[in-house]
Amino acid sequence: MAYDKFNILTSSAVPLPIENVDTDQIIPARFLKATERKGFGDNLFRDWRYNADGSPKEHFVLNNPIYSGKILVGGKNFGSGSSREHAAWAVYDYGFRCVVSSFFADIFRNNCLNVGVLPVQVSAGFLDKIFTAIEADPETELKIDLSEQSITILATGESENFEINGYKKQNMLNGFDDIDYLLNIKKDIEVFAENTPL
């Protein structure tokens, strides 16, 4: 599914300094019944965000108006658990284009890259600096430059580089998806399949 190109993102960020945030928290299973990719942002972090009666939980960061922006900053091992891509959809649909953490679970990272959310893995030390900067000023901005593979805390100028494989980087910069690539090498695949018994 096509998504917007990603190049440079400068935005304030929403801090979620909790470790091992699993995809059941990002989007609980009972919201996976849709047959279309619509409305998942409304249920992002549903049970941390709302009480059982639907009223917002005041202490949760998404309900705190002083925090906003297109970047979500999470604790270590973000996105563990279920492979549900709905988690990445919910993050995207809510309005985030980038998730920053010191460590990502594999499937969630792949899913993000496939739906146009950039996972930016930073060192534990740099993650602490980001949390500190946001705590000092919730409007502080981060600049994420995909071409340069860098993330910068604009208020302090502190910067760090992040990894992304060259192929995925080009896809994100151009808004391409893997199926476009695979359909272009379909002949190779068919030859391979003929030589691969069931």
């Binding site: 891509e85 990445a88 499937i107 792949n110 496939n114 739906v115 893997d178 199926i179 359909l183």
Partner: peptide, 11 residues
């Protein structure tokens, strides 16, 4: 993930 399900279905 579902994007990958689509990949495998199609290719």
């Amino acid at each position: 993930g579902t994007s990958e399900v689509e990949m495998v279905l199609s290719t």
